[in-house]
């Protein structure tokens, strides 16, 4: 199986990464060589095998839904790429 240029552009779109045609061609080459390597897995019969989803196979612990840190608006906003002191600002999304 090989991944074509159209698929590469589709994956880039899904990944929210803009790529030009040159980059897409590079990625086509790289991803195909990586997937060729990955295809080895098809040799293994896994019909009767359960997937391993986590190494720590215990159920997650419950905890009370309590506020532990308060008044940290300034801390949270200090790394915001936009200078606004009250909100995170993004380009307009509603016309």
């Amino acid at each position: 199986m090989s991944i074509d240029l159209k698929t590469i552009k589709h994956i880039a779109k899904l990944s929210r990464i803009s790529i030009d045609d040159k980059k897409a061609k590079e990625l086509e080459k790289d991803l195909n060589s990586i997937f060729e390597f990955i295809e080895a897995l098809n040799k293994v019969d896994t019909k009767k095998v359960d997937p391993l989803t986590s190494i720590v196979e215990t159920s997650l612990k419950l905890r009370g839904d309590e506020v532990k840190t308060k008044n940290i608006r300034e801390q949270i906003l200090k790394n915001s790429p936009d200078e606004n002191k009250d909100f995170f600002v993004v380009p307009k999304v509603v016309e």
Binding site: R16, I17, S18, N79, S80, P81, D82, V90, P91, V93
Partner: peptide, 20 residues
């Protein structure tokens, strides 16, 4: 949006795509 490097874009999606 919340932290780290941001590149501008003409709309939200292109801002995401250019940033990444």
């Amino acid at each position: 949006v919340k932290y780290g490097y941001r590149s501008e874009g003409e709309n939200l999606i292109s801002m995401y795509e250019n940033t990444r």
